[in-house]
């Protein structure tokens, strides 16, 4: 199957510009990047059909090979429709993001940054625990469960204490 250089060049250029726009902070440029990538893929699908052929309108006279390959055309049509619907949805997101926070930026996830900068001290693991030598609270403040936290004995368990 011979390769059409023009298509390849167009596709390459569209991909390059699309990716450049995609990695942008501004949401509008990201959406434009996505639209451009979708167009580039349509060109790729078209080129897989091989050569330029007659329009796929059947009539008995024409040999089967002369038509332009109808299957990639069906794929391209589906791809156009899907990229249209995704673009429409992204426009809704851009407007909503503008209404909510007056900015058209792709925002970073603040939870990630908070987790990455959290301190390693964790009360549950590292807090100092007083040693208690009994399970039963003295009768006067006995609430229903035996052995509430009562630091009575100061038995020095050598390695427990930090």
């Amino acid at each position: 199957m011979s390769i059409n250089i023009t298509f390849m060049v167009i596709m390459g250029a569209l991909y390059a510009c699309g990716i450049y726009l995609l990695l942008e902070r501004s949401l509008t440029r990201v959406v434009l990047g996505l639209a451009m990538l979708a167009n580039a893929t349509n060109i790729l699908l078209l080129s897989t059909g091989g050569f330029q052929g007659l329009a796929p309108l059947f009539n008995a006279g024409i040999a089967v090979e002369d038509y332009n390959d109808p299957l990639p055309q069906a794929f391209i049509l589906t791809s156009i429709v899907i990229s249209f619907s995704v673009t429409a949805f992204m426009l809704g997101i851009i407007y909503r993001s503008w209404v909510l926070s007056r900015q058209d930026e792709v925002q970073d996830d603040i939870e990630d940054r908070r987790v990455a900068s959290q301190s390693s001290f964790d009360a549950e693991d590292d807090a100092d625990v007083p040693e208690d030598t009994t399970e039963f609270t003295p009768p006067e403040e006995a609430e229903e469960a035996p052995g509430s936290l009562r630091a009575t004995g100061q038995s020095t368990r050598p390695e427990a204490k930090e």
Partner: peptide, 17 residues
């Protein structure tokens, strides 16, 4: 949800692409 939605949508569209 909008902030997370943007990440999710763009990554998913790239994967479909």
């Amino acid at each position: 949800r909008i902030r997370a939605g943007v990440t999710y949508v763009v990554v998913s569209v790239v994967s479909s692409l």
